[in-house]
């Protein structure tokens, strides 16, 4: 999948889990600093993204995904 295909799906998950409008979920945004998403919500986002995109996002990898763009890149590299 391309980054352009992944972003809207990820934005939907972020909106559902964290109540952030999906229009605000853009690649340069930091999950913690810009979208105010806490560590447990990040786990919920990761679990849903795993199901949706067929990737594994272990907790130690999750810690490296600071921005929405980081997450999109990771999913693009690892999705089957």
């Amino acid at each position: 999948m391309t980054n352009e295909e992944i972003l809207p799906g990820l934005a939907e998950i972020v909106e559902e889990v964290a109540g952030v409008s999906k229009d605000d979920v853009s690649p340069e945004k930091s999950f913690v600093d810009d979208l105010d998403i806490d560590s447990l919500s990040m786990v919920e986002i990761a679990v849903q993204a795993e199901d949706k995109f067929g990737v594994k996002i272990p907790d130690d990898e999750l810690a490296n995904l600071k921005t929405v763009g980081d997450a999109v890149d990771y999913i693009a590299r690892n999705s089957s």
Partner: peptide, 12 residues
């Protein structure tokens, strides 16, 4: 406790 690991496990 490792909060994220435990949370992931408990919720899934």
């Amino acid at each position: 406790q490792e909060g994220q690991s435990v949370f992931r496990w408990a919720t899934t």
